[in-house]
């Protein structure tokens, strides 16, 4: 075992995949200068040169379109979007083109594009640098979406995404970038579509996405001795590992979904829908969603904190559900 940060895991995954397949290249803003703004492309330039680490002008629409065309012509692009908020400049190439070419062309083309974008709040960067768009892309047929929340998953999911022949959006979380974990030496992958049981418990299932995994685990620990909480991190939003979620709800009889993105029409609503449809008989109480406020993310720390589920508020939500 060795220690690795979340950011370093992302660099390592890309380097390994680029060594494995010379069709893989990285394209994005500032990626080629000293590993980029958040140091997520370190080591690539030294190993693979500028040809495969392509720094672009600030032209999201053009370089996301470039990824589509390059994939159609046989390459396997990794696109870095500096903040997921900026992907809005590229919604045409990403949603209208990338997600649909395989289908629209009757299967003639594959679309092996990985989009890496960091998302989420908690760093006082306010409404245009803190958003979470996983539900939007999950709602777009043709996209796989994953949200690594650990160092192990940051590397393993990214490697699977790069090897996948579909467009995959890997949503990274900058609050986690400097998290350090013990990880194995060498290579590993984490399959897309496989949830992780982050903690076992028997009274309630918390399905927690992205950074909420960490907060849900903290809440579970705080509740130790009072409520036995099972925490499931789906890791991949599309495809969603319903088997693991249903097995857990079958055991606990209670479901609370926790995510950072706004509550309304979110991933939680979808998970609850599916549990109701596929596992209604398991439920001892109405399933619930506890998620971000339906507001833009505010700047001021008191408000930003209030906008997002926190350890204490998750504890409260769990207690309400189990009547503790």
């Amino acid at each position: 075992m060795r220690k690795l940060t979340y950011a370093a895991a992302i660099c390592e995954a890309q380097c390994e995949e680029m060594a494995r397949d010379d069709r893989v290249f990285v394209v994005g803003e500032d990626v080629d200068i000293a590993g980029g703004v958040y140091k997520l492309t370190c080591g690539i330039r030294e190993k693979f040169g500028e040809k495969r680490l392509v720094g672009t002008p600030i032209s999201e629409e053009a370089f996301c379109g470039l990824a589509v065309g390059a994939a159609m012509a046989g390459l396997r692009p990794i696109v870095e979007i500096m903040y997921i908020d900026f992907i809005l400049m590229a919604m045409d190439p990403v949603v209208n083109q990338m997600a649909k070419v395989q289908f629209m062309s009757g299967g003639q083309f594959r679309m092996p594009v990985t989009i890496r974008a960091q998302a989420g709040a908690g760093t006082a960067e306010a409404a245009q640098h803190s958003q979470s768009f996983e539900a939007w892309f999950a709602h777009t047929p043709g996209f796989k979406v994953c949200m690594p929340a650990t160092v192990y998953d940051a590397k393993g999911l990214l490697k699977s995404a790069i090897r996948d022949d579909n467009p995959v959006l890997v949503i990274e979380n900058r609050v986690l970038f400097f998290d350090e974990e013990e990880v194995p030496e060498g290579e590993w992958t984490v399959p897309l579509g496989k949830a992780d049981v982050a903690r076992e418990g028997k009274d309630i299932t918390l399905v927690a996405t992205g950074i909420m995994r960490r907060k849900a685990l903290a809440a579970a620990k705080a509740l130790e001795g009072k409520v036995s909480v099972e925490v499931i991190d789906p890791r991949t939003i599309v495809p969603l590992d319903m088997e693991t979620i249903l097995a857990s709800v079958g055991k606990t009889g209670r479901l609370l979904v926790v995510h950072e993105s706004p509550t309304r029409n979110g991933i939680g609503a979808e998970i609850v829908r599916r549990v109701v449809a596929e596992g209604f008989d398991y439920l001892d109480a109405p399933p619930k969603v506890f998620a971000g406020s339906d507001t833009p993310i505010p700047f001021s720390s008191t408000l930003e904190k209030a906008a997002l589920p926190q350890e204490e508020t998750i504890v409260r939500a769990v207690k309400e559900m189990v009547g503790a």
Partner: peptide, 23 residues
């Protein structure tokens, strides 16, 4: 590499195909 329902939707794709040739 396709017609396109989006006016100018083929522009980025063309850029990418040309990028791939050079690559």
């Amino acid at each position: 590499l396709g017609g396109n329902g989006i006016v100018a939707g083929g522009v980025g794709i063309a850029l990418g195909a040309a990028f791939a040739s050079k690559y």
